[in-house]
Each structure stands twice: as C-alpha cells, then as structure tokens.
Nucleic acid binder design. Structure first.
Lengths: 89, 89, 89, 89
DNA sequence: GCTACTCGGAAGGCGC
DNA sequence: GCGCCTTCCGAGTAGC
C-alpha cells in the first residue's frame, strides 16, 4: 500500500494528462479534417464559377434544398408528437 | 446552321442542368461529410466527459491552442514580410 | 487655440465616456425589454399548458410556421436572383 | 344527451382549435416584438460604430456589466437565504 | 442530471 | 479594402 500511495497521485495526474492530451488531439485532428472539407467546398464553388455558374444562386439552391430536407424532418417530428399525444405510438 | 440553332439552346440547357446538378451534389456530399465530422467531434467530447473531463474547459483548451497556432502563423507571416522587405527571402 | 487645447483632450474623453455610457445604457434598456418579452412568451406557454395544450407540440407548430415563412422568403429571394441573372428585373 | 354527444366532440375541437390558434398568434406577436428589439439593438451598435466606437469591445462591456448584475443578484439571493435561515427576514 | 433546443457572438465569404 | 450578410461555434435554458 505504501508504495502504491507514493506514486498514485503522480500517476493519476500523468494518466489524466495523457488521456486529456489524447482527447484534445483527436478533436484537433477532426477539426483539421472539417477545415479541409470547407476548403474543398469553396473549391467546388470556384470551379462552378469558372464554368459560368452564379455562385450566389448556387448557394441559395443548396440552402433551399437543405431547408426542404429539414422541413420534412420537422413535419415527421410533429406527426410523431401528435401520434404520441394521442397514444397511437 | 439553322438546324444547329434549333437544338443548341436546349442542348446547352441540358448540359448546364446536368453540370449544375453535379456541382450541387458534390457540394452536398462534402457538407454531409462535414456534418459527420461535427458529430464525431461531439462524440469525442462526450467520451471525454464520460471519463471525467470537463467539456467546457476542454473547449477552452482547444480554442486557446487554436488561437496560439493562429498567432504563430500571424507572427511567421509578419516575419516573412520583414524578411522580404529586407531582400532576405 | 491655446485655450481650446488646454481642455480638448479631457473634454473629448468626457464626451466619449458620456457618449459611450449613453449607448451602453440604451442597449441595456432594449435588452431589458427583450427579456421581458421572453418572460411574456414563457407565460403564454404556461397559460396554454394550464388549458390542457401540449407545450412541446405548440413549440413545434410555432417553429414550423416560422420555417414556412422563411422558406417563402427564401424562394422569393431565389426567384429575384434568377430574374436578375436573366436581366429581367 | 344523444344530441349533445353528437356535437360535443366537434364543438370541443372547434373550441380547442380557436383557443390554440389564439395562443399561437399571441406567441408569434410577442416574437415579432422581440425581433424588432433585436433590430433596434443592432441599430444602436451601428450608430455607436458610426461614432467611432468599437462594437466588439462594447459587446464585451455590456456582457461584463450583465455578469456583474447577475453576480450581485446571486449574492443577494444567497444573503436572503442566510437571513431566512437565521429567521431575520 | 443529462439531453436537446435556442440564442447571442465571432468568423468567413461576397459584393461594392 | 471595407462593410454586409450568412454561417458556425459556444453558452445558457427548458424539458424528460
């Protein structure tokens, strides 16, 4: 026990520090990938522009298509809520 | 020429429509991947939390480390400018 | 000029301080009003609940109605964009 | 009773529908007012900016003052609790 | 207590 | 290059 106690606190800190560092680095790696994707998206818009498309309109199209998907999900959600409220689920 | 003109406009529209659709779908695919990564990041935070770490503090750490990196880049950029101004690049 | 210079700096600071304070207080007043409205909204939901309505469903209804309005605006926006792109505005 | 039963359900639905609609519209009206206030606040920041003030810093000031107020309220609440515990309220 | 939603602030992209 | 607008992130709040 004595020996264990001598080292426990430090070891715990070390473990926690290493553990924490691992989590932080995993997050940073994922954020790097996200950033890269953002760059890719920007590139695609640039490519489209080079092909004569209007980027502003394209963005709106993407935005509206997204809204449509979201609305569909919302409506399904409220339908579920109604069904649940009526004890029909 | 006349015959060509008859079809040109429609063909062009078709080509443009297909082209546009391709760009939009590429963008949507990339945004899907971004969204997935956001989910992964959220999961990592959740995992860290389950291991006893404080998520709010972790976010601060990640944020500060990012700022430090940005500052470093900023400083390197300024350094490059100075070196260039001195003809030392 | 000399006399003006004697006081200019201090006066400017005073003016700025007073000016800044005025802006800050106007903002805080407006935020107070916003907060009061949030409270009112909460009260209405509470009242509805007391009348047997399902607050969660009500929130969804309000949310969907808002989305519908937003979608309508978005669609008008993209229509305007198309018209502008075609030189028809 | 039979006659009553014939109409009760429909009447109830109608009453509920009207009632629900009234609540929803009250909420939407209040949210409109909130949105208008948000616009006013934005305008004040814009006005301050036009007068040479740094908006980002102003936001920090407002935020800090709010925290201070909250802290004060928190402290008063705790004080009240102590006083109550001591039977001195 | 944890999760999900909402809101305000900050950053990035676009147009003038 | 600057300002505007939209988008994204973090914080606080309400519900289960």
């Amino acid at each position: 026990m004595a020996k264990a106690n001598e080292t426990t606190k430090t070891e715990t800190s070390e473990v926690n520090a290493g553990h924490l560092r691992a989590f932080v680095e995993r997050i940073e790696r994922l954020e790097e990938e996200k950033k890269a994707l953002s760059g890719d998206i920007k590139d695609v818009y640039g490519e489209a522009k080079a092909n004569g498309f209007d980027v502003k309109i394209m963005r709106k199209i993407v935005s509206i298509r997204k809204q449509d998907r979201d609305s569909r999900i919302e409506e399904e959600t409220i339908l579920d809520l109604y069904l649940a409220a009526l004890g029909m689920n």
